[in-house]
Simulated scan of single mutants.
Amino acid sequence: MGALLEKLKPMSKGQEEMLQALKSDEYEIVGLFGPTGSGKSLFSVLYGIDAILEEKYKKLIISRPVVDVVTGKELTAQELGEQFYEIAFAYLRDILSEFIEWNKVEELIKEGKIIFADTHYLRGRTFDDAIIFLDDAQNIPPESSVEILMRIGRNSKFVIAGDPVFQKPHGVERDGATVMREVLIGEENAKVVDLGLKDIVRPGARRGIRLLIEMRMRNRPLNEIEKRILDAARIYAPDADVITVVEFVDAKKQFEITAEHVPDALIIVKEGYLGRLVGKGGERIQKIEQDTEMRLRAVELTLDFTNIIRAVHPVSWIYKHVLDADFEGPYLAVKVRSNEFGAFVGQRGFHVKFLDAVFRKLLGVGVKAYEVIEEEETGRRKKRR
């Protein structure tokens, strides 16, 4: 391991997998996908600088889109002039401040060993003996990320990082990170590392993600049923901070969900406000149900999404067998004990398809279910054999 990476200790399984993928000579392409604060940029840049200091590669090319936060437009080096490189230097300085003296980084830049490349002007260039690092891939069109991929020359490594869930542009379904992740899965000599909420280690990042999710929920457009429920909640529980309402009556019909405990809609409230919405004896939410003629349930917004699964899944006790629910690319990956996996998925997969419909409407992410054989269960099976 290089001198800079020695200063950096992985703090989660996802970070360990990311580090091994970067260091491995087996992979020419490494895709790192997950939320901010999970170390994608830090690990990639430290690995790249270590590699050029050890002369494994001749140069580190960093390509990162500069986006106007107001308009959402990607800005070019031609438009920004010197400011483009000032932004690039600030980005690199923020990443490296605790690991290497900035004057040493400046020397590498002057020597042409660290190069900043505008994503718009890569056509026609070929990078040999280089590490190419494309960061924030969710902010560029898919064809631009593929264009960079085509620039890889001899003895080169391409590292792409992005967030296909929380930081992708609003209203864009097929962003660069999402598409490149799909392209790289199963690609020869490529490795995809999915990082989730459990891999967020940067102070404040978890709170930032929670606030970002809350903002997206508050801004999502409501249909007429959802507006009617929200209006009733404001009348009967005026002191409850309701973030959003999501109804799924049609999804229940489509996937033949008939269990009585499954609500018609879910009310999401800010943490600490559930009691105010429900009322001491449940009288407030009962009045909202009577007013709207809808079967309702309410949950607080946290980063533990098992509470939503518990609230809407057709099998009332299934949450006890959910071992983990975290993001994997543009999906919520739910890991379920093998002995109850069938109950979670449902006949013809209707239970998990119903969950998928709910989460897509609420958060814009799909749901995938994974069967997990726990170690104790595996041990019992071995004894029987």
Rank of each mutant, 00 (worst) to 15 (best):
G2E: 08
L4K: 02
K7E: 11
L8E: 03
K9V: 08
S12G: 02
Q15L: 12
L19N: 08
A21R: 02
L22A: 01
S24I: 04
I29A: 02
L32W: 11
F33V: 13
G34A: 01
P35H: 07
G37T: 00
L42P: 06
S44A: 11
D50R: 04
E55M: 12
K56H: 04
K58C: 03
L60W: 00
I62N: 04
R64C: 00
V66L: 05
D68K: 00
G72F: 12
G72I: 12
E79P: 09
Q83P: 06
L92E: 09
E101T: 03
K104S: 09
V105E: 02
I109E: 06
I115M: 08
T119E: 07
R123P: 06
R123D: 00
R125Y: 01
D128P: 10
D136E: 15
N139G: 09
E143S: 10
V146Y: 14
V146P: 06
L149W: 15
N155M: 03
S156A: 14
V165F: 05
I185L: 14
G186K: 06
L197W: 07
K198C: 05
I200N: 08
P203N: 04
R206K: 15
M215F: 13
R218P: 04
R220L: 12
A232H: 02
I235Q: 09
Y236S: 06
A237S: 15
V249G: 07
T258Y: 14
V262L: 03
D264G: 12
A265K: 06
L266V: 08
L266I: 13
I267Q: 03
I268N: 12
I268D: 14
V269P: 05
K270W: 14
E271W: 09
G279D: 03
Q286W: 06
K287F: 01
I288Y: 04
R297S: 13
V299G: 08
E300Y: 05
L301H: 05
L303F: 00
F305H: 03
R310Y: 11
A311W: 12
P314V: 08
W317H: 14
K320P: 01
D324T: 09
A325W: 10
F327T: 15
L332Q: 09
V334C: 04
V334L: 08
V336L: 06
R337C: 01
N339Q: 04
N339W: 12
F341H: 04
R348V: 08
V352Q: 15
F354M: 13
F359I: 02
V367Q: 10
E375N: 11
G379V: 10
